[in-house]
């Protein structure tokens, strides 16, 4: 029995893909050690979308041609945009650990989402920073390369923040080797904001943070969950201290499954799983468990919707009829090079 994994394993978002793949690999190895799915051993087939639509289409087709039972992924909304129509046509279920763009929610499609939509996260973020941090003028740097996600996030945040009485100035850039981080930051700070929002990957967010701190050591930095990986600290150093982000799981949680997963992951891969690793582990386990629970002749989508709840590392997971999980993310802050959960 084969299942696929689709994620970005090269380029600047490789950290997300790699953590996801590692989480999926642990889940598959665990189920194989316990006898497989209904006695069948599971093979994980990994494909790299390299954050490019062409590669994502090719990789999805390849996985379908290999007769996978379902796919864990993709890891970003931009890739979900191209992979979903292909999977939909082939009747293959996508269980995405990390896709959050608003447009995928509330649809009866083959895409199952573990995280709540950008709307929930962006609203939470808007309320938190307006109420708790007193932010009123926010400049939002966002990456056009993952437009499906960033624009959705930005839109939801803008609506919510403006409703509260704040002001949002968007600054767009497109990630890649030619980006001049200094000039983007210069443009952003010229708006005289009291907070900088980065809807960007960890690698980009870290370097924006560096540039912001060079000019303004005090200003509030915050970001979306996309940047909440260990790489943020690795590349950002001191400059990301105090940055507020969102996280799929509570890093201070003592949930035994989560603690166990983090131990196994760290020992095996020599680094922390991050939200992508934990979510991909959950997504893979859900997919495998649904395959095991599926009745003869039942579409997998139906199994996922009707035969829940499924166990997650931090608690049970249930899908509504649209295949959405609507789980609220946690608010975290970087303190001494570590993520600390605020709520």
């Amino acid at each position: 029995m084969r299942i696929g994994f689709l994620g970005g394993l090269s380029g600047s978002v490789a950290d997300l893909g790699e953590s996801g793949r590692n989480g999926a690999q642990i889940a598959v190895e665990e189920i194989n050690r316990s006898g497989g799915v209904n006695g069948r051993q599971v093979e994980l087939i990994v494909r790299d979308d390299a954050q490019s639509p062409e590669r994502a289409i090719a990789a999805t087709n390849e996985l379908i041609a290999l007769h996978v039972e379902g796919i864990v992924g993709p890891m970003t909304s931009a890739m979900a945009e191209v992979a979903l129509p292909i999977a939909q046509q082939a009747g293959i279920v996508l269980v995405s650990p990390t896709v959050t763009a608003r447009k995928f929610f509330g649809l009866e499609d083959n895409l199952f989402l573990l995280m709540s939509s950008t709307r929930e996260e962006a609203r939470l973020s808007a309320e938190f920073h307006f109420n708790e941090n007193g932010a009123r003028h926010v400049v939002a740097i966002h990456d056009l390369k993952n437009r499906a996600y960033t624009e959705s996030w930005l839109r939801e945040f803008t609506v919510a923040f403006q409703d509260l009485g704040g002001e949002v100035f968007p600054v767009a850039y497109e990630s890649g080797s030619e980006v001049n981080f200094g000039s983007v930051v210069r443009a952003a700070l010229s708006k005289q904001p009291d907070a900088v929002l980065m809807i960007a990957s960890a690698a980009d967010a870290a370097r924006f943070a560096q540039k912001v701190r060079e000019r303004n050591p005090k200003i509030l930095l915050f970001g979306s969950q996309w940047a909440a990986t260990e790489r943020l600290m690795e590349l950002g150093g001191q400059s990301v201290e105090g940055m507020v982000l969102h996280n799929y799981f509570d890093r201070d949680s003592k949930a035994p499954e989560l603690v166990r997963l983090r131990d196994i992951y760290t020992q095996r891969f020599l680094r922390e799983p991050g939200f992508a690793g934990v979510a991909a582990y959950d997504a893979t386990r859900i997919l495998l468990m649904a395959l095991a629970r599926r009745q003869h002749g039942e579409p997998l989508q139906e199994t996922l919707v009707t035969r829940g709840p499924f166990p997650g590392a931090e608690g049970e997971i249930t899908f509504d009829r649209f295949g959405d999980n609507r789980r609220l993310s946690h608010v975290t802050v970087v303190r001494d090079g570590q993520f600390v959960t605020l709520r």
Binding site: S177, E214, E234, G237, Q238, S239
Partner: peptide
């Protein structure tokens, strides 16, 4: 060929680089 990226890097804080 990549000299113009220098500005992105100078002053960067790599203190947490493993």
């Amino acid at each position: 060929e990549a000299r113009e990226a220098r500005a992105n890097v100078v002053g960067a804080d790599l203190s947490r680089n493993p």
